[in-house]
């Protein structure tokens, strides 16, 4: 059983009487521990897909199973709980709360899940250790570099031990070197058994992930555009890149 199962999912907006299909009959499975990227030009519907996958939005049609539970009919309150416990978000602009220090930022999701103060502290410290930031606990986000801020954000995403981590352009605001460090961090997380989904339009980043899902006009493209996926940049000798995967056909 896949971790995420989308069946005939559509998202339809009505703009001035005109019907816009941001997602059109998408069927998709993502398994446990997968490291994949969602690519596509702007306006293709990839943000919509991420919002629906990330339980920030509900589909207009179709069903979604996350970790065995159907979520297309969940209330906003239930969705908040699912986001809190099963999903970690990493954003392009880090989205740390400026008034809280590093530890408090990492503790925030646990506050919403009602975990006691002592355990919060222990778990926040552990998550910060994973991203190698144990030495900046009392700093404000504004006192950190971009890469450090993104690592705090990753620690925040990790702290509730979620099954899936979504990263929306996680390196979009970082220089190449720092970006690589962050990507290495994501790869390590996926090797530890977490599902990591990167949303990007940057081919270099897509090239890092074993699986690439391309969205074109609200549908999943049959064949991934090699240029968009950064396949043309891969050194042939590296061999780390797996063969281009076709969209996964729902399996039993």
């Amino acid at each position: 059983m896949a971790l995420l199962e989308l069946r005939n999912v559509s998202k339809i907006y009505h703009l001035g009487g005109e019907e816009i299909r941001a997602l059109d009959d998408v069927t998709l499975d993502i398994g446990i521990g997968e490291f994949c990227s969602i690519i596509g030009p702007s306006g293709s519907g990839k943000s919509t897909l991420m919002h629906i996958l990330g339980c920030l939005d509900s589909p207009s049609k179709g069903t979604i199973k996350l970790d065995g539970t159907e979520i297309q009919k969940a209330s906003t309150r239930e969705l908040a709980g699912i986001r809190n416990r099963k999903i970690g978000f990493v954003f392009q602009f880090f989205n740390l709360l400026p008034k809280l220090n590093v530890v408090q930022n990492v503790e925030l999701p646990m506050i919403y899940s009602g975990i006691g103060g002592r355990e919060r502290r222990v778990r926040a410290l552990k998550a910060l250790e994973q991203v190698e930031l144990s030495n900046r606990l009392k700093n404000r986000p504004s006192q950190l570099s971009g890469g450090q801020q993104q690592r705090v954000a990753i620690a925040r995403a990790l702290v509730n031990d979620p099954k899936i981590i979504f990263a929306d352009e996680p390196t979009g605001n970082l220089d190449t070197h720092t970006g690589e460090i962050i990507l290495a961090l994501f790869r390590r997380l996926s090797q530890e058994g977490r599902t990591v989904i990167l949303v990007t339009h940057n081919p270099e980043i897509a090239a890092v992930t074993p699986r690439r899902i391309e969205i074109r006009n609200g549908k999943i493209a049959d064949k991934v555009d090699a240029k968009l996926a950064g396949l043309d940049r891969l050194p042939k000798a590296a061999g780390s890149a797996e063969p281009v995967t076709a969209p996964v056909v729902p399996s039993a």
Binding site: G54, L56, T76, R77, A80, G81, R83, N84, R85, G88, F89, F91, N95, L97, P98, L108, P109, Y112, S113, R156, A157, N160
Partner: peptide
């Protein structure tokens, strides 16, 4: 607004 959005994304309910 963005802070509030972030809090909601990481699991804050409307009531929170």
């Amino acid at each position: 607004i963005r802070e509030i959005g972030t809090c909601k994304a990481i699991g804050a309910t409307g009531f929170d």
